[in-house]
Amino acid sequence: MASTIDAVKGSYVLELMENGTREDGRSLLDFREITIEKGVIPNAEGSARVKLGNTTVLVGIKADIDSPMKDKPDEGNLMVSAELLPLASKNYEPGPPGEDAIELARVVDRGIRAQNMIDLKSLFIEKDKVWSIFIDVYVLNYDGNLFDASYIAAVAALNNTKIPKYEDEKLNRSETTQLKLNGIVTSCTFAKLAGKVVLDPTGNEESVMSARVTISNDENSIRSMQKGLSGSFTQNELEELISVSFEKSKELRDKIGN
């Protein structure tokens, strides 16, 4: 349940939006400041902490020897999970992942998979033995737009993922090789509030948005889309947002690349 304070903040944000302004002074289609730190968890095969304004997401990547899926014996496995940690927001509670965490994980998973960022066939070791790559999204602080923050963090973490050496049926984590990636996928999340559409919504903006859409893409193609909440978009709006997403993703790719 939203508190009175939350309600006041929400109506403040809506009032601003009527005049086309935002609580932090950004224009409607700008990202907040993004900082990316790679390799923050040296024990993990790959990791990155991303701050998107006050939203903070940590992604850790582990690689383990596993058996392949029955229907894909020559491919490794990729598993994306997301945790909305109780320390990240007063609205998050301990317990198994709820539908919001599941949606977040699956949307990030779809973009990475659709982009073929990881060639799953390259994770094959020998018969009945493949690598499983576990991407765990840990939300440390919530202030809106977990989708884009998680995409950036997951891709940045994959970018610095080193796979241990496997020899004589043993894992040697001191000898590693860089995980090979095919390109970079990023996402742009838009929120609709007071009839206007904004990029990279803050927590206050998300509390009053009627609809949300996340568009992920690389240089040439849309790779995944996900609309959320009960509001709607028109086809024209979506076509415009796809163009914005292609434009903005250049910035994001440059940021992650460094």
């Binding site: 779809r110 040439n220 193609s221 790779r223 889309m225 709607s232 028109t234 076509e239 796809i242 292609f246």
Partner: peptide
């Protein structure tokens, strides 16, 4: 009635 989009999901590769 309005042709508004209520559900949109996508994965794979599409141009605009």
């Amino acid at each position: 009635r309005s042709n508004e989009v209520l559900l949109l999901q996508m994965d794979g590769s599409l141009t605009k």
